[in-house]
Every structure is written in C-alpha cells, then in structure tokens.
Write a protein that binds this DNA or RNA. Structure first.
Length: 452
RNA sequence: UCCGCGAUAGCUCAAUCGGCAGAGCAUGCGGCUGUUAACCGCAGGGUUCAAGGUUCAAGUCCUUGUCGCGGAGCCA
C-alpha cells in the first residue's frame, strides 16, 4: 500500500510544479507580467516556423499569442503542438511578456504545453472567407470567432445597461407569461402550442399583462423572449426575439417619449464607453453613436407623410403604414433617432388611446433608428376608457371573454398610462451596424430555420 | 406569400458557342527562430443539388422539385 501511495504523491507534486501555475484568464494577463501562468483555452490559429511556433489561444475572454521555441519545451510537447489541429483544447504555461510584435501587446513564452483534446476532425471554419449559409449551419462553432464575440458582448452590455437604467429609475421587474391564451393584438400570426389539451400561444408581447402589473406596482417592466410566426424573411426579422417593455401608471405620450429617449441614450453611451474594443473589432463608426443623446427629434405622422411626399413617393396616401424605404427616408432627415407620433388610430393596436382633440389619430409613437435600421421602439398611451375599449374589441372582431380581466383594469381606478417595447436584436444590429439581425443572438430562430 | 438570383472539391469561386472538371485556401507530409489571413516544395481530394428530357456529346440547354441568398409585404 505504501509504494503506490508514494507514487501518487510524487505524480501530484510533479503536476503541481509543471502544469499548475496560476490559472489566469487572458483578459487579465496584463496584471501578471513577468509571471509564469497557465492559460486554458482553444487553439484558434497557428503559425509554424520550424523550430519556432506561434500559437494563438482563445479562452473566451481574449486571444493570446503563445510562442513555443523548440529549445524551451519538451520535444514531446513541441511535436504535439506541431500536429495539434485548429480548435484543439489546450493548456499552456509560460511567462507573460509585453511584446509589441504580438497582437494585443502581450505574449506567452511557453514552457509547458498540454493538449486537453486534439480536435478529431478538420475544423470547418477557417480564417478565410465563408458564405452566410455555411456560417449559419455552423452557428455553434461560428460563435467562437472574434466578430461574434464582439457582437454578443455588446448585446450583453445593451441588456445590462437597459435593465440598470430601469432598475435605478423606479421601474420594477415584473415578468409576464410566455404561454398565453389568445393573441395580444389579434393581428399577427402566433405560434400555437398545446396546453393540457387546450390551444395556447407563445406570447408576442407582454403588453396587456404589463398594464395589470402597472396598476399594481406603478412602474414596471418585463424583459423576455417574444414570438412571431410571421412569414417574414428580411434583415430585421426573427421568429424569436427579445423585448424589454416598460409600462407605467399616470404616464402620457410625452412621458413615454421622455423615458424612452433617456433610456436609449444611456444604453448607447454605456456601449460607447464600455465596449470600445468590440466596436473597433466591428469597425463601427462611433461618431454616429456619440450623437445618440436625448432629446431626440419628434415629428408627427402628418409631418412624416409630408417628408415622404416631398422626397420619396409623391402619391403616398395618408393612413398607409410606412414601408422600409419610407422609414429610411424619414430617419435620414435626422442624425439621431426620431420619434414619429400620432399615427392614424386605424393603423395601430386596439388599446391605443385616441387623441381626444382628433380621434382619427392616436397617442402612439415609434422610434425610428438612423442609418436605415427602422423601428426599434413602438409604444404610446393606452386607452383608460372602458366603453371605448369595449367598442374597439368589437371593431377588431375580438372576443370579449378572454379580455374580461383587461377590461377590469378600466373599472377599478382606471388611470392614464403608457408604455413601450424595445426590440433588443434591432437595437444590437443598429448599435453594431450589422447587415442582419441574425448575428445579434446566439442561436437565431428564423422562418423555417431551427438548426442548430 | 410574391419578385429576382443562385446551388461545381471541406470552404470561396472559375470553366468561352454544348466538346478532357480547374484555381486559391483548408488538409496530409517535408523545410524554415518573429509569424500576424506567413512563405517554399510535394501529395491526396468531385454522384457538378435531385429527378426526368433534348443531343453523337450536358456543369452548361429544357421541365419539375428541393434548398439557400437578396428584396417586398408584415412587424420590434
């Protein structure tokens, strides 16, 4: 018994000395200069110079160039590195040195190299160009690339900044259900599912439940996934996307626009400040982002129609919805996001409050992002009038029974209230200036696309 | 759902008028002590999306289908 035990202890000591240097994440390597540390990650890329190899190791927090000199590591380790395929998982130990020739400014002079797993097949995604179809089919691997890292880090910051702003401005997070008994707005296509034998639908908005929560808590927001079964194949549509929806009691159309522009400004400025490196990876022109500061210009639907008639479609009919080119045209008139308010009542959801002075338009507003990104926010003041909503349900051919609870909110202390929904993916696409929202979420769900 | 374009090596693409299936990258082997999407040499790699048709001959022309991309509508 004594001998094997001693052997185990001996092995353990060797491991401690040779492989178990302090494990450091790449983003923190600058604080370990001249120290010997271990980095755990994946072999992103490699350049073989004969008796010198450059390994670029990625650990999720960054990429570090590791140099292996033939004389500095064991012959076995050197040979193993030479034959390690791309994306093999590795553990490298070496001294951290400032090195101007290395990308990132730091380099690891390797003394120990260990392969956790040698990649078993040729890694499909090479440093060269690929088509979008191929990349989407390999989305699970594409996420390892620097561009996707930058986008998803910015997404995380956008979400964090949004929630932080709401949390510190009196809004309470009260999430709303994802399984719902009926269409919230009754217009768009919903994904149907089976709820104990009864039809149920994946939510397309937390809107109506938000109103109940606002009457209970004053200022609330929900943050969650939203589902639309529309057969839309465009650069701005996903079947599953995330939306943040603030809603508050005693709020008006103007209050909504004030809150939304403050929130969006905070988010944009936070990204600018905290994600400069990621914006640089994406080659984002940040002067456009610097301009995203409240107040935002506000124009009425009527004025927007005038712009379209003057600079685009001269025959644009009052009452029509804006198409993508129309939205682009309107947003091009301004260097920051623009609110378009007082849309025709007939165009908007049944619960929007009509303008008392002019009932053919309602107290709604959309926020159009610049650079052609279109509508990133939709919202407005909700009707607080029981009789009006009853009439609206009828007009929109919606059954009353599923909305009884919603009508109750107008019976027990009804107050003016407002809210809005911000599309997370569109906001990410805009702030990152991406061609398509499919890159703004780790695994996009699009029409007829569920793999991976 | 509608309109347009496309599908050839693992990837990105080429192939003239219908006449021998090609390149770069990737991969494998060899060389190189400062590479940055390295470089040099050698090698392997194809059901040309599917089914049918025209033809002496089809990657190429015709028909149908499948899938993808771009745009529109609808929306955040």
């Amino acid at each position: 018994m004594a001998r094997p035990r001693a052997t185990a202890e001996f092995k353990s000591k060797i491991l401690t000395e040779s492989f178990m240097a302090k494990i450091v994440r790449i983003e923190a390597l600058g604080q370990s200069q001249e120290q010997t540390v271990t980095v755990q990650g994946w072999l992103a890329d490699k350049t073989d110079k004969g008796k010198l190899q450059f390994l670029r190791v990625r650990d999720g927090t960054g990429v570090i160039q590791a140099t292996l000199f033939h004389k500095s590591v064991s012959p076995e380790a050197f040979e193993a590195a030479k034959h390690a395929p791309q994306e093999s998982s590795v553990r490298v130990t070496g001294q951290v040195r400032a090195e101007p020739r290395a990308p990132g400014g730091y380099e690891l002079s390797v003394t120990e190299f260990e392969i956790v797993q040698a990649a078993r097949d040729e890694y499909p995604i090479t440093p060269k160009e690929h088509g979008i179809e191929f990349l989407m089919a390999h989305r699970h691997l594409w996420l390892r690339s620097s561009r996707q890292h930058a986008i998803l880090r910015i997404r995380a910051t956008i979400i964090q900044a949004t929630r932080h702003w709401l949390d510190t401005n009196g809004f309470l997070l009260v999430d709303t259900p994802i399984l719902t008994p009926a269409a919230v707005e009754g217009t768009t296509t919903l994904f149907e599912t089976d709820f104990y034998g009864e039809p149920a639908f994946l939510t397309q908005s937390g809107q109506l439940y938000n109103e109940a929560n606002a009457m209970a808590f004053g200022k609330v927001y929900c943050f969650g996934p939203t589902f639309r079964a529309e057969k839309s194949k465009t650069r701005r549509h996903l079947s599953e996307f995330w939306m943040v929806e603030p809603e508050w009691a005693f709020g008006t159309l103007d209050d909504y626009m004030n809150v939304a522009e403050q929130m969006v400004s905070h988010v944009a400025q936070t990204v600018l400040k905290e994600r400069a490196a990621e914006l640089a990876v994406l080659e984002r022109d940040t002067t456009c982002l610097e301009k995203i500061v409240a107040p935002f210009p506000r124009i009425s639907y009527d004025e927007a129609v005038e712009i379209i008639r003057a600079k685009g479609d001269a025959n644009f009919k009052w009452g029509d919805d804006f198409g993508a080119p129309d939205e682009t045209l309107i947003s091009e008139q301004f260097d920051r996001p623009v609110f378009v308010h007082h849309y025709p009542t007939a165009m908007k959801a049944f619960y929007m409050a009509p303008d008392p002075q002019r009932p053919e338009v309602c107290l709604s507003a959309d926020l159009l992002a610049p650079e052609g990104y279109g509508e990133v926010i939709g919202g407005g003041q909700r009707s607080d009038n029981l009789e009006y909503l009853e009439a609206q349900l009828e007009k929109h051919h919606l059954p009353r029974a599923p909305y009884e609870w919603y009508l109750d909110l107008r019976k027990y202390g009804s107050v003016p209230h407002c809210g809005f929904g911000l599309g997370v993916e569109r906001t990410v696409a805009w702030l990152c200036k991406l061609d398509h929202v499919r890159e703004t979420i780790s695994f996009p769900r699009m029409m007829d696309k569920m793999y991976p």
